[in-house]
Design a protein around this nucleic acid. Structure first.
Lengths: 212, 212, 212, 212
DNA sequence: TATGAATGAGTATTCATTCAT
DNA sequence: AATGAATGAATACTCATTCAT
């Protein structure tokens, strides 16, 4: 009969809610996450959640907007002010993504969105416009820059973007799907290092080719 | 005179059900597929479905068992009897996979299983054991063979397997998630051709390296 | 742990469900009626209700369609085959309505629809087209017939229809709103008898008027 | 210089709240009106509403008390001081009701109370005691007076009261339920005029009858 | 074999009311 | 007096599974 103490934390609520939502979204997926669980994980009631986010889709969009879009923005800034080797830029972009996304709970979002895109086209559209197309544009610009300078060899652009993005994407998708099924302990850092090295070789203008 | 078709019908039930299940699973995913829809697409009642498959999970496993595992078995046979270039073997394996899986509705299964693995660990386990681990073993054996013969350079095995599998996997995942969101028409054949070429260059023992 | 016995009563279900729905709709109104209560009053589970009616609105429409529209149809038939006094026809129509609607649970529907029309425009539209407009057309035809024969005096048609319908409508609305609040026991039969008498006087062509 | 308007504001709060409540109650009904909407329409917060009215029911009662009961009181005063024709008194009472209620937003209250009486018996009881019973008593007294003086013929009292009240009540109920569904534009003034005329004829002591 | 009627657990969202500030 | 953050009860609809026929 003792009413639970009401705490007013207007400032802190949004980030607490987004944190709880992220944790559950990446664990269960979008459809299978119950908003009641999000609320209770954030220490509030279901109703409180709706004070901050109009519905489940809005909550998901906020998670992406607050957690992933800023990293895109950062990377756009890094690219804008970069002078020097295009491959170094590529490394910086991937490294920042890895630090801010790959090493946090946000790492689960790419698998989630791939998994639910068809059943929630509105979310897919949002993610495509705000994350995918911007990320691809960024990598594309970097590659174009390298090809123009002769640092990279000429490649089909869309395929080249895939080649850059796929390894990190596969790593994240795998970790959040079969990650726990796999017996052998995988070392993501080493995996990425190898792929970066393959990338360097795959992209670089070969000596004798450049001379042709 | 209507008896014979009725009989044929009866014997065809399982495959009709599996066909309907496959179509809906790859369209909606596992959780979002309604067994009632599967049954009605196969032209039977919901109850009949349960005469053949104990539950939704059993139905899914049957789809995999009947449609995907045989391709693995074929590929194992191809590898067993192959003599000659390891890269040619790799091409044969990928080509068979592409023909039997990539160009059929089964192409949607990899995305499905990645999407639902966490929420249905039993299915993930089944798929991992019956498809993933066997496919990786097969590719691994092929790579080991090529490395032993000097055709391929020495690479970390797990990473090399990833490098072989990832492009085709990404292609399928993408097609069944953002495929329809994307404006530009993508040409999967060309995409695969490019990746096969990159693969050839990435794996081959370079002349001067081998001389060292 | 003993599962409740499942009874298959496909034939009887619809009328049992409609009966339960009618009872609760007229008691609580449309919005305040819980489908779970309808189901349990009919002795079935919530799910079963949905086997027969797609949703709450469909259930309501079925109640009207099965219980009220047939009375309209009957009255149209009565009017079509009637020969003789127009006032007698009017009495027959009102009497049939009173017997089939006014003395049954359907008597609560007019109040319900008036109460919820604004919040459920789709239901209002359905009821207006299937009941109200047909009932008014029927009364209108009867009045026109009496005016043409000189039995009734000339009156504005819409108002005349109101004058005929209003007393019985008010009676029903009152019974299902303040009926229980009222201390004095009201006698609906006597009320209607008085109104019918007033109607006879109000409609009839006065002797001296007809001579003018 | 902003202080005075602030003060005026404060004193005007209750009537602003009652105005907002009236508008929403007659639009949505009692149950479907959200107190948050009432508050925001009045330009205050939800909490403030509760400073003035203990709950939704109290708010509704206040609307009736402030807007409808005074018209009853006025009519009681008109009747108390009236000398002359009873029918003229009836016309005055109806006219005042029409002006103060029928031509304002309060016109929606009769439909509301009829619609929600059963689900909110406390409100029904309040309205019955403060409005309905007093209005009927008033009309009853007027009719009794006319019957005593020989201006009206002898009629069953309750029925006679119904005859007087029903047309105006039906008009208001209709306007707030199917009013918008109806294609033909109805003219309430003309409707009332016709009914008043019918009333005059229906109530008056016929010459030859009075002579009997 | 085949049917399809029946079940009931599961969930996003709303809103009157409370209360800390 | 005023705010608005917080609460939690309440409800339509879905669908995997069961089972009587």
């Amino acid at each position: 009969m003792t009413a639970p103490p009401r705490k007013r934390r207007k400032e802190a609520r949004p980030s607490e809610l987004l944190g709880a939502a992220l944790a559950l979204f990446v664990d269960k997926g979008f459809a299978a996450t119950r908003l009641e669980d999000v609320a209770s994980r954030a220490g509030v009631s279901k109703g409180t959640l709706y004070l901050y986010y109009a519905n489940k889709a809005a909550l998901f969009k906020a998670v992406v907007q607050e957690g992933i879009v800023p990293v895109i923005v950062e990377n756009e800034a890094i690219a804008a002010r970069h002078t020097g080797s295009s491959f170094t830029l590529l490394e910086m972009l991937l490294h920042n993504w890895w630090t801010k996304i790959g090493q946090t709970d946000y790492a689960g979002i790419p698998k989630l969105i791939v998994a639910e895109a068809r059943n929630f086209p509105e979310l897919a559209q949002f993610y495509y416009e705000n994350v995918i197309s911007r990320a691809r544009a960024l990598v594309g610009a970097c590659l174009r820059r390298g090809m123009a300078s002769g640092e990279f060899r000429q490649l089909d652009m869309e395929t080249a973007i895939d080649v850059v993005i796929a390894p990190i994407l596969m790593l994240l998708i795998w970790r959040y799907s079969f990650g726990c099924c796999q017996q052998g302990e995988s070392d993501p850092e080493r995996y990425l290092q190898i792929h970066t090295e393959l990338l360097r070789q795959g992209l670089r203008q070969l000596e004798n080719e450049s001379q042709v």
